[in-house]
């Protein structure tokens, strides 16, 4: 027995290791089941799973990769928040300084490309689920949650697009948010909005319509930057996290990865 094996056995036999991992080395059926059951992260999984459900050509692992990319976005995003101030005075130059002066300034690249990759991954996940008919009973509700998560992913990417506060950001968000002023009844250029008035006073105008609610102003300005920052860093991620939890839990409750009935 080499010195490394003896050291390994000494570590695994000690009180510290035993307090963290409450099972032996996963080499037999019982300890392998314990490895899943006694770990808060791994117990997202069942102990045993349908053989066809783990073939890579069946699942493409796209749902898992979408979640993994979400985690990468959370980690890189939190690190970016140390350097970035969501005000018109600082936002652009913080990003510029990040790439020029900060060690590991590549984090912004990873955050941005990870976001694009997440959008692609979640589409492919939806494609896979559709083409295997996995939305069919009993998984209808989980598909619906998945659609909401897809929308949230797009909104996360969209709100993040504004934060560098460069020309690309500002005008892409201008194009996107201009749609909101055409909301029926709620946008000042939307159909029927001109009918909503008290006497001669229009109730829906540029200063209070749906677009104003989104941007906190009539143009993409400082208020919009702050609003998108809070939506991007706090509100949408929290909602997405809750729905991801429900999504995963329902996979288990609805019978695990789908297969022929």
């Amino acid at each position: 027995m080499s010195v490394f094996d003896r050291f390994g056995n000494w570590v695994r036999g000690g009180q510290v290791w035993g307090s963290v991992f409450r099972h032996g080395v996963p080499r037999d059926r019982r300890t392998r089941a314990m490895a899943i059951l006694s770990n808060v992260f791994l117990h997202l999984h069942p102990v045993a799973i349908r053989k066809s459900g783990i073939r890579l050509s069946f699942t493409w692992c796209m749902g898992g990769l979408t979640f993994f990319l979400f985690l990468i976005e959370v980690v890189t995003g939190v690190l970016l928040m140390f350097y970035y101030r969501p005000t018109v005075e600082y936002a652009y130059f913080d990003i510029e300084g990040l790439r020029a002066h900060v060690t590991l300034g590549l984090l912004r690249e990873m955050h941005r490309w990870g976001a694009h990759a997440m959008v692609i991954a979640i589409w492919l996940h939806m494609l896979r689920v559709f083409l295997t008919g996995s939305y069919k009973p009993p998984r209808e509700f989980n598909w619906s949650i998945g659609v909401i998560l897809l929308v949230l992913t797009l909104l996360l990417s969209f709100t993040g697009y504004l934060l560098p506060w460069d020309q690309l950001a500002m005008w892409a968000i201008t194009v996107g948010s201009n749609m909101a002023r055409a909301t029926p009844l709620l946008g000042h250029e939307g159909p029927l909005a001109s009918l909503v008035m008290v006497g001669d006073v229009p109730l829906v105008h540029a200063g209070d319509d749906a677009r104003f609610g989104l941007l906190a102003g009539t143009f993409v300005g400082p208020n919009a930057l702050l609003r998108f920052y809070v939506l991007h860093c706090v509100f949408i991620p929290v909602v997405a996290t809750i729905l991801i939890a429900v999504h995963f839990w329902r996979i288990r409750k609805d019978g695990g990865v789908s297969g022929p009935l």
């Binding site: 392998r32 899943i36 791994l42 102990v47 799973i49 066809s52």
Partner: peptide, 14 residues
């Protein structure tokens, strides 16, 4: 995908 009763352990296969 047939053989839905064939189960494998998540650790280590998955």
């Amino acid at each position: 995908e047939a053989g839905s009763d064939d189960k494998v352990l998540v650790w280590p296969d998955l």
